[in-house]
Design a protein around this nucleic acid. Structure first.
Length: 288
DNA sequence: CCAATGTGCCGTCATCGGGC
DNA sequence: GCCCGATGACGGCACATTGG
């Protein structure tokens, strides 16, 4: 399809009322768009909407202003894979558009920015109950009987709905159970709480939760190294998630581009075939 | 039904490169 | 030089699929 040669389809009712007008954009425009823009749909009110290919991580972002996304995508796709560069682009856009937050919320349930800054220090149990990390460092659990499972409410380091801690109500307080050996919870204020399996005193698998103050007072300076390590692991864990998310998004964009280029290629082949037939039937008209 | 295999996701480690 | 974020590599786990 050459420049300015657009194909238009009109969807109308039996009474002849036009519902929508679909204009296929030129191959060049498609190529420039890189991945997403396939057609323009004109609504009855005169509003024009770009119809884009749909992929998991992109639909939530591109329903709004698509022009800036198209521009950005064009830049992304015109260069060789560089996740660092992609990150720079994304981070520069993040100030204006909170796209990462939205995508991550629906993508894999990972935290919005990083695990360090949880949106709220309140967590929800599988039964809908809540517990909170109070300002003094205490973990407060609202009324529980029997064994309960704690899951992160909303964003967090664990998979959405994954059980990270179980607890039971006892006569002398709360007791925690957990599948792993250690869990670190960080509050919105940045304080780190370690939930660890003790060496003895309580049944195996039972853990206790300690606040930063008690950790420092009971175990002293050497624990600082452990705490730093846990924070570093948490940050790296989150960075790895984000990196994988960007990589998946990049692969999706490449797949989208393949689709677009295949369509473009087919159109060009069809056009070539048509021209060949035309030349065969009417050789004298060639070049006019 | 069950073991083998494939796939996807995650956490961790090692390394690199940029900022200070 | 140190710190920190990004990312490749690796291994583990959970789940789905497949063949006997």
């Amino acid at each position: 399809m050459s420049e300015g040669q657009q194909e238009t389809a009109i969807l109308s009712t039996s009474e002849g009322e036009t519902l929508v007008t679909v204009t296929q954009v030129s191959a060049e425009e498609v190529a420039q768009a890189g991945t997403t823009t396939m057609a323009l749909v004109q609504l009855p009110g005169g509003q024009t909407v770009q119809v884009a290919t749909i992929s998991d991580g992109e639909t939530s972002q591109e329903s709004g202003d698509s022009s800036s996304d198209t521009q950005k995508r064009r830049e992304i796709l015109s260069r060789r894979p560089s996740y660092r560069k992609i990150l720079n682009d994304l981070s520069s856009d993040a100030a204006a558009v909170p796209k990462i937050d939205e995508e991550k919320a629906e993508d894999d349930g990972a935290s919005t920015n990083n695990i360090v800054t949880l949106p709220t220090p309140i967590y929800q149990t599988s039964t809908g109950q809540y517990f909170a990390i109070a300002g003094g460092g205490a973990i407060q659990i609202n009324g529980a009987e029997g064994l309960q499972a704690l899951t992160m409410a909303g964003a967090g380091g664990q998979q959405a709905g994954a059980t990270i801690v179980q607890y039971a109500q006892t006569s002398d307080g709360q007791q925690f159970f957990m599948p792993g050996s250690q869990v670190v919870v960080q509050s919105a204020s940045g304080e780190t709480y370690q939930i660890r399996t003790p060496s003895g005193g309580i049944p195996q698998g039972m853990v206790v939760a300690t606040s930063p103050a008690s950790i420092q007072s009971s175990q002293g300076v050497p624990e600082e190294g452990t705490r730093k390590r846990e924070v570093r692991l948490m940050k790296n864990r989150d960075a790895a998630k984000e990196c994988r998310r960007r990589k998946k998004e990049y692969v999706r964009s490449l797949e989208n581009r393949v689709e677009v280029l295949e369509v473009q290629n087919k159109q060009l082949l069809d056009e070539l075939s048509g021209l060949k037939n035309q030349f065969r039937l009417n050789p004298g008209s060639a070049g006019q």
